[in-house]
């Protein structure tokens, strides 16, 4: 396989050392464990989705405009995060910073919408304690939201380190891994908006 990358004549900085490659591989293993974590929460939700205890169901609660907007924010942030890595590879600090900040703002926008959505639900009396359905819903979507919050903190910290130290094989690897994490959050959201929200309102 060595020849494949050699013939391409190009290897990004984060893959140059074996340590870098192994750490990135390790991060894929972590993501695979995250897939399993979320699958248990999805399974719980699907099993409990009809147990509304006489309270509201997804149809009564989910608003298409809001989750469509959330989807658009997160999808676009995944794209801009990819661009940030592209500019990191082009060795352009300015490009990296601009796209990373846009990514963070879109992530924040997503979080604000989600927090608003949650507080509206709780105000309506449809909080997590109301029914098994709502407990499962808040746990699943809340866990994703928590991941997005952690992602924002992580991307920001790496960005500060990059401003201080510049692009090195170590910071390049960190940027790449935060990128993988951020794309993964969008992957989880794809399944969330499809099977929770869209299926809920249909």
């Amino acid at each position: 396989m060595e020849t494949t990358t050699a013939t391409k004549g190009y290897q990004p900085m984060e893959y140059k050392s074996e340590e870098g490659r192994l750490k990135i591989f390790g991060f894929w293993v972590f993501l695979s464990a995250e897939i399993v974590l979320f699958s248990t929460l999805f399974a719980t939700y699907f099993v409990l989705v009809h147990q509304t205890a006489g309270g509201p169901a997804g149809k009564d609660l989910f608003e298409v405009n809001i989750f469509a907007m959330e989807t658009f924010f997160l999808l676009t942030s995944s794209f801009t995060c990819g661009l940030a890595i592209l500019y990191m590879r082009k060795n352009s600090m300015k490009g990296y910073l601009i796209w990373t900040i846009i990514t963070l703002l879109l992530g924040l926008g997503f979080l604000i919408l989600e927090i608003k959505e949650f507080s509206t639900l709780v105000e309506m009396g449809a909080g997590p304690t109301h029914s098994a359905f709502l407990s499962a819903f808040f746990t699943l979507v809340g866990t994703h939201g928590l991941h997005v919050s952690l992602g924002i903190v992580w991307v920001t910290s790496v960005m500060i380190q990059v401003i201080k130290r510049g692009f090195t094989p170590v910071t390049a690897r960190k940027i790449f891994m935060t990128g993988l994490y951020w794309h993964f959050l969008d992957v989880v959201w794809i399944f969330l908006f499809s099977t929770i929200y869209l299926l809920g309102v249909a």
Binding site: Y15, S78, C81, G82, G179, L180, H183
Partner: peptide
């Protein structure tokens, strides 16, 4: 397209 799963030697 975004995560470049094919890119590494690993």
């Amino acid at each position: 397209y975004f995560m470049h799963i094919w890119e590494s030697k690993e």
